[in-house]
């Protein structure tokens, strides 16, 4: 069901944990599947993400996308981190099964939520960053069977 990369990141998740006094923390959840993701960012004065950690309550894909997303944003500037979309995370993981696409959205939103928290704490505006929803529902319509 899952690619080897997903399984690798699930079995050996990178960057699990907390950052004390983090520059930004974001927690997002998906009411439908009940999964929760928390992202911690440590951002230096130049706006470069020095460290990134996560905790996730969720399925295999949720854990793997959290892990991959933290890897992808580490060392990037805040602006560059905005380009780490769920598609980028999925590609880096060699894809996800269709029912699991929303798990990668959780990762994208988690990063955005942490960035939003960082911006608010520092009273700055990050161009292109929208206030994240803390509840991600797909809104997909069920066909009638």
């Amino acid at each position: 069901m899952y690619s080897e990369k997903v399984m690798d990141h699930f079995q050996n998740p990178r960057n699990v944990g907390e950052i004390e006094n983090a520059s930004g923390v974001g927690t997002v959840g998906n009411a439908k599947c009940g999964d929760i993701m928390r992202i911690y960012l440590d951002i230096d004065d130049n706006g470069v993400i020095q460290d990134c950690k996560f905790k996730t309550f969720g399925c295999g894909a949720a854990v793997a996308t959290s892990s991959m997303a933290t890897e992808l944003v580490k060392g990037k500037t805040v602006q560059e981190a905005l380009l780490v979309t769920n598609k980028a995370v999925m590609e880096a993981l060699d894809g996800l099964p269709p029912v699991k696409v929303h798990c990668s959205l959780l990762a994208e939103e988690g990063i955005h939520a942490a960035l939003w928290d960082y911006a608010e704490k520092n009273g700055i505006v990050i161009e292109g960053l929208k206030k994240p929803k803390n509840d991600i529902s797909e809104g997909e319509e069920e066909e009638e069977y």
Partner: peptide, 8 residues
Amino acid sequence: RSMSPLYE
């Protein structure tokens, strides 16, 4: 649990 935000 060690990686669960709920547990934290």
